[in-house]
């Protein structure tokens, strides 16, 4: 019962949280004294980036490590890594788009050669490379091994992105929500809206991941069924 309840509630809860984020972010929270209405992008961009860099890429990396570890090696881990990486591409693109929309009025350009922007774009290319690598190999076991190794190599970029604002002098601001000693920088309603958006987009990731996983299982089943049917037909032809 509980096992069925969580997946069923995942979609509606996600939609409610995202709708709540939109309502709070667009109508309830105040304008910023310096940035004006531009501040409302803060309720989308950091949450989307959080999912892109840590939740989805993290899921793909952990599933890849578990696939390579012989004790936990299973096709489920390979599928989870693949599906999480696909969703990750979507969120990385959204991160770059929302960042650009914020950057144009703030910095005066859609794109700047900033350490965080550039390293995030590189992560996007790496995620696309992962998907290209999967398409290049027909053998399931070989494909799974190679893509798992590549996912781990690509994940090295995530801490580089995280610390890029500290390691280099960048246009992109440093820590916005918390200071280095974990003191909250955003207060009141704005902080609550931010929290709701983080929860909403995180749940959206898991919702998309679940849907994509089910689609992948159906696709594999359809492929194996059609292969079996084709073999049966050939055998029948041979019988005549």
């Amino acid at each position: 019962m509980t096992k069925q309840l969580f997946p069923r509630l995942l979609g509606p809860v996600t939609l409610v949280l995202l709708a709540l984020t939109a309502w709070l972010g667009l109508w309830v929270t105040p304008r910023d004294a310096v940035q004006g209405n531009l501040v409302r992008l803060v309720y989308v961009h950091p949450a989307v980036a959080w999912v892109a860099l840590y939740v989805s890429f993290g899921t793909a990396t952990i599933a890849s490590v578990l696939y390579l570890w012989k004790r936990t090696r299973s096709i489920v881990m390979d599928r989870v890594a693949h599906c999480a990486m696909e969703v990750s591409v979507v969120f990385i693109v959204l991160t770059l788009i929302t960042g650009s929309i914020w950057g144009r009025p703030t910095w005066g350009v859609w794109w700047a050669w900033d350490a965080r922007l550039t390293s995030t774009a590189i992560l996007g290319v790496l995620a696309l490379g992962y998907l290209a690598l999967r398409r290049a190999n027909d053998d399931q076991a070989l494909r799974a091994r190679r893509s798992a190794v590549f996912a781990i190599l690509a994940a090295i970029n995530v801490p580089i992105i995280h610390f890029s604002v500290d390691w280099w002098k960048t246009l992109h601001q440093g820590a916005t929500v918390f200071t280095a000693n974990r003191t909250l920088l955003i207060h009141g309603l704005m902080a609550w809206t931010l929290l709701v958006s983080f929860l909403g987009f995180t749940l959206l990731f898991f919702w998309l991941l679940r849907a994509r996983y089910r689609l992948e299982v159906s696709r594999e089943r359809a492929l194996s069924v059609s292969l079996d049917e084709a073999l049966t037909l050939r055998r029948r032809e041979g019988a005549f």
């Binding site: 690598l133 190794v149 690509a154 580089i160």
Partner: peptide
């Protein structure tokens, strides 16, 4: 060497190699 082993033998490995390796070479 690592990226070469990753792409070796697959479909279009010569074109796949730059896609995978160049982002890693950037730093």
């Amino acid at each position: 060497t690592l990226y070469g082993a990753l792409t070796a033998g697959g479909d279009g490995s010569a074109t796949l190699l730059p896609v995978l390796a160049l982002p890693a070479f950037a730093p």
